[in-house]
Write a protein that binds this DNA or RNA. Structure first.
Lengths: 201, 201
DNA sequence: TAGTCTACCGAACGAGCGTTCAATATTCGA
DNA sequence: TCGAATATTGAACGCTCGTTCGGTAGACTA
């Protein structure tokens, strides 16, 4: 793996290329499977030689980690901001769901890859950061649900609501299509309805 | 792969051993990953020699198919019976969810393996039966939801409710523990609450 | 109990994998 | 524009994988 170039023009180019590889590799892995896609196949799909990948990543697994990193890291800050804004609990949950579902919709390939390799994530040492990100997000979700439960606005036990939401939102990556019947906002609002007592007609 | 023995005593033994391998392999694959577990490793975990697996299965993938087959096949008949009983739609959905969640709880290892390899299932020829089973079950779920929607008893669009339920129930395999906070029945009832208008206080 | 069918073993094999690296092409900045 | 830094190539390597198969032990039935 080459170090990031010091010269500014090449540094920027390096970042762009690397990010592009992550993005497009996510698609390839999501469709063909991470384990089932050889580095040679992947490189061919990306229009690169096999060895070129090692210019940007230490190895195949490092690329996988980069893919999974995009799932939580960019979501944490907006989520925290929503909780800190301290609006009424119902609006907070709806906002959180919109941000979350929107992010899943944008990164559904990444999430489909994560789903394939979740068991690897749970064990490896180099996966600590990924685990941490997921744990942090789940804590924020728990906090939002706890506030709702306090006000009696939750239709379920908070622990069950948490698992239900994690399940339905993550599963969204398996079926969501950009120009499908539902927009990410409609999906998020629908999911909100499932756990809230109010807002159903 | 050896043919099933013709002699009755050995035939029964063959069935038992084969089923035992499927069951225990599901656990090993769920924890270590299907692709990440070599046949040698698996055999060691099962207390067998590597070659012995080929006595019962054509290969590693045939074993995987056998694991995934147990996910829908035994669920279809009870589900169909529930729909045919033609009780009120709400009771039908609750019954369906109890059967479904119960089955997931019993076969959570199998489901965790399926989740890893779903992309393989979607493409291969030899996976047709597995795909068919899943499609059949989803049709039954759709029917149960359509009946509810007709009576205005559904809190969400039926299509969204379907995806939400598929997500939360399948995700249950990732966190359910036999002596955990919730019984399969409590989980199923909680999930029912998420999509129904009634039954929340 | 003899004979045949069945179960299992485990070393060996070829294929395909992820990775390396010397060579070459390209790009940027002084 | 020239030279150093960077980008990419692709053949080669060592290794692990799934699978095979001849051999042996065990089990059933006639």
């Amino acid at each position: 793996m080459a170090p990031r170039p010091t010269r500014p023009a090449l540094g920027a180019r390096y970042d762009r290329r690397r990010a592009g590889v992550v993005e497009r590799a996510a698609r390839v892995f999501a469709e063909r499977g991470y384990a089932e896609t050889s580095v040679a196949e992947l490189a061919e799909q990306l229009g690169l030689a096999a060895g070129a990948l090692y210019h940007y990543f230490e190895g195949k697994e490092a690329l996988l980690i980069a893919i999974c990193d995009e799932l939580t890291v960019p979501l944490l800050e907006p989520a925290r901001a929503l909780l800190d804004a301290d609006r009424d609990p119902e609006a907070t949950l709806r906002g959180l769901l919109r941000a979350w579902v929107g992010h899943v919709a944008e990164h559904r390939d990444h999430l489909r890859v994560f789903t394939q390799v979740r068991h690897v994530v749970d064990h490896g040492e180099e996966w600590r950061a990924v685990r941490r990100g997921r744990k942090d997000f789940e804590r924020l979700l728990d906090e939002a649900l706890a506030r709702l439960a306090e006000g009696g606005q939750l239709a379920l036990d908070p622990g069950l609501a948490r698992s239900a939401l994690l399940g339905m939102v993550n599963h969204t990556a398996q079926w969501y299509r950009p120009r499908g019947r539902f927009s990410p906002e409609e999906i998020a609002d629908g999911y909100a309805t499932t756990v809230l007592v109010a807002g159903r007609d």
